[in-house]
Amino acid sequence: MNAIVRVTGTLNEQRIDEAYLQNWEAQLKAKANEKHGEGEAGCSTEKKARGETANTPADRIADFRAKIADRKAKSGKEYLSFYFVEATSYEVQE
């Protein structure tokens, strides 16, 4: 705790596009009663990292669609990119 670490891993990209959102909606319909995270519609840490404020799955999907439309208008890209490191090892620095 409170230590500096050196992490080795792989930088990964998760793309959120219309196909991803449609798949998410289909899963929601199939698992209507299943919950994720802390009783909200997603892990609070994940939502904070992505700058999300919506609390229901439908609101989150609508928010992603709005962000995708905004990005398409600005850059022509029809997806959002989120990056994360998949750690394979770490070393505590002294």
Rank of each mutant, 00 (worst) to 15 (best):
T10E: 08
K31S: 02
E18R: 06
Y20E: 01
V7R: 11
F64W: 04
D17I: 10
N23Q: 15
W24F: 07
L21G: 06
E78P: 01
H36K: 04
N23H: 14
N2D: 11
A32S: 13
E18K: 08
A62G: 11
E46I: 12
R6P: 01
N12E: 13
K77D: 10
N2A: 12
A30Q: 15
A54I: 03
D63R: 07
G51Q: 07
G76E: 08
F84R: 14
E91V: 14
K77S: 09
T53W: 09
K48T: 08
L80H: 03
S81P: 05
R6L: 15
E13Y: 00
I61C: 07
R50S: 06
A66M: 06
N33H: 10
C43E: 09
A62F: 08
N12K: 15
V92I: 15
Y20K: 03
T10P: 01
F64I: 00
N55C: 01
R6I: 13
N2R: 12
A54Q: 05
Y79V: 09
D17G: 07
E18L: 02
A69F: 03
A49G: 12
G51E: 10
R60T: 03
K72R: 12
Q27P: 00
G37I: 11
R71D: 06
E13P: 00
V85M: 08
Y20W: 15
K29Y: 02
E91Q: 15
D17V: 13
R71W: 01
H36Q: 08
I61S: 05
V85G: 06
L11N: 10
A73I: 07
K29S: 05
T45R: 08
K77E: 14
D70P: 00
K74F: 03
S89P: 00
